[in-house]
């Protein structure tokens, strides 16, 4: 799905991170973790083809990243603050299909049917006729995911989709993503700060440690030394008798 060969990320004159060499298997659910400002959003921007690698080579779904790649769906950070009072949720999802079309064209019935289908899939059909500003954070996140999914991508990038959600909504979104992944085979890359709600579904994680991105399987990620190092504060990994795994600050 992703192949990084000695990739570095440069913004302006500063190198955000460098020496990224790793491969992420196709169809995986992968967390992107790292402290604030470590370059997680920058990583997504690069996969989207909006920022060229400062050096090295990057392949996304077998190709050099390029803007407007229909095979990638994207949910940006702070999505809720973007969408406002002036559009219905449904029309926002529709723009995911028609927003790149120039000229006077009617929305086709196939396009409408696709929007209905994806709204049902993410459980947003009931409130899709409301304006974005009239939805709760969890509902807005579902709409954002619907918009990213509507073009049938092979890879979904989500930047902090669990931020500002309560535990139940976090769990609902995680369940939704797992279903999308297993039913449609869509690879998922999501930026998160707390691994706990995801531990049961993650295949692995890209972690930004000391300015260098790495990829590891989930078992290796969930180590106290690594997490403690990553966040600069003591983290404990706890395994319950039921086999559930979670992390907490020590």
């Amino acid at each position: 799905m992703l192949e990084f060969t000695d990739v570095s990320a440069v913004r302006g004159n500063t190198t955000v991170w460098s020496e990224g060499t790793f491969t992420v298997p196709t169809g995986a659910i992968v967390g992107v973790i790292g402290p604030n400002g470590s370059g997680k959003t920058t990583l997504l921007t690069m996969i989207l083809g909006l920022l060229r690698p400062g050096s090295g080579e990057l392949k996304v779904l077998g190709e050099t990243p390029h803007r407007g790649d229909d095979r990638i769906g994207y949910v940006p950070q702070n999505y809720a603050s973007i969408a406002g009072d002036s559009i219905r949720a449904r029309d926002l999802v529709l723009l995911g299909l028609t927003g790149t079309q120039y000229g006077l064209r009617r929305t086709t019935s196939a396009q409408r049917a696709r929007v209905d289908e994806v709204l049902t899939e993410v459980g947003a059909a009931d409130f899709a006729k409301r304006r974005m500003s009239q939805l709760s954070g969890g509902q807005q996140q579902r709409i954002a995911i619907a918009q990213a999914l509507v073009g049938k991508p092979q890879l979904l990038l989500l930047d902090e989709p669990l931020a500002n959600l309560d535990i139940r909504n976090q769990q609902d979104i995680v369940t939704l993503l797992e279903r999308i992944n297993s039913e449609r085979g869509i690879g998922i890359l999501l930026v998160v700060h707390d691994l706990n709600p995801l531990l049961s579904v993650l295949d692995g994680a890209i972690y930004l440690l000391d300015g260098h991105p790495h990829y590891d399987n989930v078992d290796e990620i969930v180590s106290e030394e690594l997490l403690t190092h990553l966040y600069g504060t003591a983290i404990k990994v706890v395994r319950t008798p039921q086999g559930d795994l979670f992390t907490r600050s020590a």
Partner: peptide, 20 residues
Amino acid sequence: VIFRPLLFASIDPPVAEAKG
């Protein structure tokens, strides 16, 4: 001519940008 892309770019600039 530009109605939909302009709407997309106005409402949802980061995603519109990524979509080309």
